[in-house]
Amino acid sequence: MKNLNRRDFFKTTAFGVALATLGAKSAKASDKMLSEDRIGVLVDTAVCVGCRHCEWACKVAHNIPTTDLDTYSDNTVFKEYRRPEQTALTVVNEFENEKNSLLPIQVKTQCMHCERPACVSACIVGALTKEEDGSIIWNDDKCIGCRYCMVACQFQIPTYDYDRSIDPHIRKCDFCHDRRKEGQLPACVNICPNEALLFGKRSEVLRVAKNRIKRKSDVYVNHIYGEQEVGGTSWIYIASKNFDKLKMPTLVKNPAPGISESIQHGIFAYFIPPVTLYALLRTIMWVSTRHKDKNSENLSDIHKDEKGEES
């Protein structure tokens, strides 16, 4: 990043350093505590067979109307690339496998549940929250429908009910928060016949992912998608093909909300900058009023002349 150059340049401002520490402190204070045992899912695209049972289970778990499970074996849906939408919080897409055209690669898409989520940082009312276990859930009672979360999300996951005027929802994967409260696995993980979705502690799941890549280095690309992307995500992917070829965005390691939050906390570092600005303006006002009063005594004659002309 080119920020480095600017960083050096700005460092010369001695005045800045003092406030910079304030900004850093307040930004740090805002970080929510994440549990060491926070959850994660490993999506092993080399194991996924594209049965789309996860799509069906997700709909059932979230009370979204759906057809019979048997209808999901229709593979014509793979002809078009699909994205999660209001009526499908997770979708599976198919990609060509150059190594073996008969074993195409299928990739499931859903909310990645970022470690440093942009949507949570962006939400104006805090309707999206990052839970201690790592899941990001949406709060119906708070949301005002501004869709800033959709602007912020680097994976373009949140969807919005554009056809509803009253009570439109932001919909996205909620890591089956309700199911897990009852001690159940997320619906998609539970139904997956191949356990292509491996649920566990994020640290553990990450370890398994590294293990698999190391063991089958001829099969897997040496990249765990989500390990470091935008500061890490709860859902991580391994694949036998480069991720940009699987339509996964190539992202930087910096958390998406990092810069904007720092700016925000910089502006509001304990309200010091606004208060300083207020004081500064008040001083200028005071100085200029005095200056004007002095001048007006000298210039009173001229003013009188002007007024005379006007009347």
Partner: peptide, 25 residues
Amino acid sequence: PVIIICFLVITVSSSQTQLHKQENK
């Protein structure tokens, strides 16, 4: 210029926080 400086400061603070966090990660 005073306002500009104020905002320069903010940008510095942002980039510095960024740096710290990265290193930890």
